[in-house]
Computed example of a mutant assay.
Amino acid sequence: MKRVLVIEDDHRMRDLLVRQLSALSCEAFAVGTPSSALRAVDAHRPDVVVIDIGLPEMDGFALADLLRHTRIPMVASTGDAHPDLEERAREAGFTGLLRKPFRLRDLARELDRALPRD
């Protein structure tokens, strides 16, 4: 079972992601702030992290920069429709970008890209 850490400040989206990940047979952990995310990475050692770009304290790009040394695959999540965001996410080290609202199959596709096959 893959362990996924969700970093999302909106509690409804955080809960939805945890439910969706459970439906995809993942063990999901969720936090709402970058500072709690840094602690959770050490505590839970996830296989992948899903990071909201629009976080408080620092944006998801800055958090990804802090997490890059862990070599844990990262998937970006955003409600922003800016067309250059996908390229910026790739340059920041994200394996993919989920645009909200997204479907379960979109989440599954991005996890497949991020996680090695067993």
Rank of each mutant, 00 (worst) to 15 (best):
M1W: 02
V4D: 01
L5Q: 02
L5P: 02
V6S: 05
D10V: 11
R14G: 06
L16G: 06
R19Q: 15
A23R: 15
S25W: 09
S25K: 15
E27A: 09
A28N: 07
A30G: 15
V31N: 03
T33I: 09
P34G: 05
S35Q: 13
A37I: 05
A37E: 04
L38F: 02
R39F: 04
A40E: 08
A40V: 06
A40M: 08
D42Q: 15
A43V: 10
A43L: 13
A43M: 12
H44I: 10
R45I: 06
R45Q: 14
P46T: 05
D47T: 03
V49D: 00
V49L: 06
V49T: 10
G54F: 00
L55F: 01
P56T: 09
G60N: 00
G60Y: 00
A64S: 07
D65A: 12
D65Y: 02
T70D: 11
M74L: 15
M74V: 04
M74W: 01
V75T: 11
D80Y: 12
D80P: 06
P83G: 08
P83Q: 12
L85P: 04
L85K: 12
E86I: 06
E86H: 13
E87N: 14
A89D: 05
E91Q: 15
A92G: 07
F94S: 01
F94E: 04
T95Y: 01
T95C: 12
T95R: 15
L98Y: 07
P101A: 09
P101H: 11
F102N: 12
R103W: 10
L107M: 09
L107R: 06
R109Y: 09
E110P: 03
E110H: 08
L111F: 05
L111P: 07
L111D: 07
L111N: 08
L111C: 08
L115N: 08
L115G: 03
P116L: 10
P116T: 14
R117H: 11
D118K: 10
D118E: 14
